[in-house]
Write a protein that binds this DNA or RNA. Structure first.
Length: 493
RNA sequence: GCCAAGGUGGCAGAGUCUGGCCGAACGCGUCCGCCUGCAGAGCGGAUCAUCCCCGGUUCAAAUCCGGGCCUUGGCUCCA
């Protein structure tokens, strides 16, 4: 079964056919680095990450570019606050490293390139000139605006009609524009006081214009918001790419404008497939920086760990909106625990002397085969991660049943199950089953816990359950879960 | 106002493109049982859905068509 996905451009499910049958050019609209990332951003990252992993799994080589917008008035507005320094670039750098740290902790595969706007101003200027040459843009007072009337397809991505649209950009631009819907490719001068004051919630009287400016054929100025992604996508991938992914809140105007300016400049289709990751909602509203209802990635990782966070985010298909609440996070923790325990049990059982190479459990083998197919079908069906995860859970059930139901285990069957967990769980979903001892100090900790549990066993044998339970409770507080089994106590961190 | 995406059990969330296997998945929760000194995990079972409403098409509709109601998002910065 081949991969098919829902293309925002057409609104339909389409078979995925990249221009080159062996490789995929993927661009993801990254962050404007003016704050720490929150779970809503992580949702998009994790889904793009899994898309990347799946594309590679089915045999494509993937070239993945993910930008950082480090030139933006909101970044300028942050300058001089919270010890971040006065320079736009210093503020941006601070948040870039914060975001990179978050991405690493979420176990995201690296993109091939993380281009920044500040390093691509020459490419941006070249692209604007190409748009001007095609007479799809005009200069006005040192700024350059895209002429939406010159591009008949304008609005087709978001399904909007030009006549129905309200104006784009701030009020003071209007006088310079032919059409209120025209948008800036290049803006003259530094960021103005009003814009900074607005994002900083300050009085414009006390704010200086700021932000870096660059020389251009139209004078000193700054690139517009939308042109950067077009320029960087072309610079690091191609004029025409396969997959352009971003948050659903970028459909209009950002992606609409990208298409217009790119295709006006090159005459080529900018991206064949547009995928949009839907929003994360909290209590009926979108999670966003401006609404102050967000949960940062760092908080989430600290509180529940990377695997449950991934489990949470992958438990809804990317195209649907998803609800965040304490309850849904708790559910994800439980889901992850069940999955990991299933994996652990399979590993332990396969390593035990009760695992026989001559034993064959048909039910287990059959379930594995079926669930591998189910997982593949789900992923090929527009990256249905929720459905794919259910295949993994079916496998957990089969493993548990197999181990509980007999004295001798099917060694080969268990190995197949483990391999399936690793291939799909680790490899595709990006979980880290085996990675519970990242700092290497667990070796000693394990010995100490084992020692403690031996003491506890002696207490239990002597009937001193209070002491025994006390030990169990105490080490549980330290993060070690003890389970008494027929084969003696077992523990996990 | 315009545009888009949705409305499925206590919760969350698949299934809707490609109508029948959906008497509705996976999971969380709750209850009971097995196991256990207890707890947990696991297993077994139970609980739990007129698939937003009305009408239509069809032998057959959660799925298709028409109308309505509601929610969220975009139209200003946003993954």
């Amino acid at each position: 079964m081949a991969l098919s996905l829902t293309n925002t451009l057409t609104g339909e499910r389409e078979p995925f056919e990249p221009q080159d049958p062996d490789s995929v050019l993927l661009y993801f609209c990254g962050l404007t680095v003016n704050d720490d990332a929150h779970l809503g951003h992580a949702r998009a990252w994790v889904h793009v990450d899994v898309m990347h992993r799946w594309l590679e799994h089915v045999g494509y080589s993937v070239r993945h570019v993910e930008n950082f917008t480090d030139v933006n008035e909101k970044i300028v507005a942050r300058a001089g606050t919270a010890d971040l320094g006065d320079a736009e670039s210093a503020v941006a750098l601070h948040y870039i490293s914060s975001v990179i740290e978050d991405m690493r902790s979420l176990n995201l595969k690296r993109a091939d390139v993380y281009p920044r706007v500040s390093e691509h101003v020459p490419e941006i200027i070249d692209l604007i000139e190409a748009v001007l040459e095609g007479e799809h843009a005009y200069e006005s007072d040192g700024s350059v605006y895209f002429d939406v009337d010159s591009f008949p397809d304008y609005g087709s991505l978001s399904g909007q009609d030009l006549d129905e649209m309200e104006s784009q950009g701030p009020e003071d631009e209007r006088a310079e524009k032919r059409n209120p819907q025209d948008f800036a490719l290049w803006k003259a001068g530094p960021v103005e006081e009003e814009a900074i004051a607005q994002h900083r919630d300050a009085d414009p009287e006390h704010v200086e214009p700021g932000g870096q400016t660059w020389d251009s054929p139209w004078g000193e100025g700054r690139p517009g918001w939308h042109i950067e992604c077009s320029a960087m996508s072309m610079a690091h991938l191609d004029e025409s790419i396969d997959l352009h992914v971003g948050g659903q809140d970028l459909v209009f105007p950002h992606h609409e404008n990208e298409i217009a300016q790119s295709e006006a400049a090159t005459g080529e289709q900018f991206a064949k497939y547009w995928l949009h990751v839907n929003l994360l909602e909290t209590e009926g509203e979108k999670m966003s920086t401006s609404l102050q209802n967000f949960f940062t990635v760092k908080n989430a990782i600290d509180e529940v760990g990377p695997n449950p966070v991934r489990m949470f985010l992958l438990s809804a298909q990317y195209r649907q909106s998803q609800t965040y609440s304490q309850r849904t996070i708790d559910e994800a923790i439980e889901r992850w625990d069940r999955l990991e325990r299933g994996y652990d049990r399979a590993v332990e059982a396969a390593d035990s002397p009760d695992a026989y190479t001559k034993e064959t459990a048909h039910a287990l083998r059959q379930t594995i085969e079926e669930q591998i197919d189910a997982f593949r079908a789900a992923m090929n069906d527009d990256f249905n991660t929720r459905e794919a995860l259910s295949a993994l859970f079916e496998l957990v059930g089969a493993v548990n049943e197999h181990i509980d139901g007999r004295d001798r285990y099917d060694y080969e069957g268990l190995r197949e199950a483990i391999e399936t967990f690793e291939t799909f769980g680790n490899g595709v979903m990006g979980f880290t089953f085996a990675d519970r001892s990242p700092d290497g100090s667990v070796g000693l900790a394990e010995e100490l816990v084992a020692e403690l549990l031996e003491v506890r066993e002696r207490e239990r044998e002597a009937g001193n359950y209070e002491t025994a339970d006390g030990i169990r409770e105490r080490i549980a507080e330290l993060g070690v879960e003890v389970q008494d089994t027929d084969d003696g106590p077992e523990f996990r961190f």
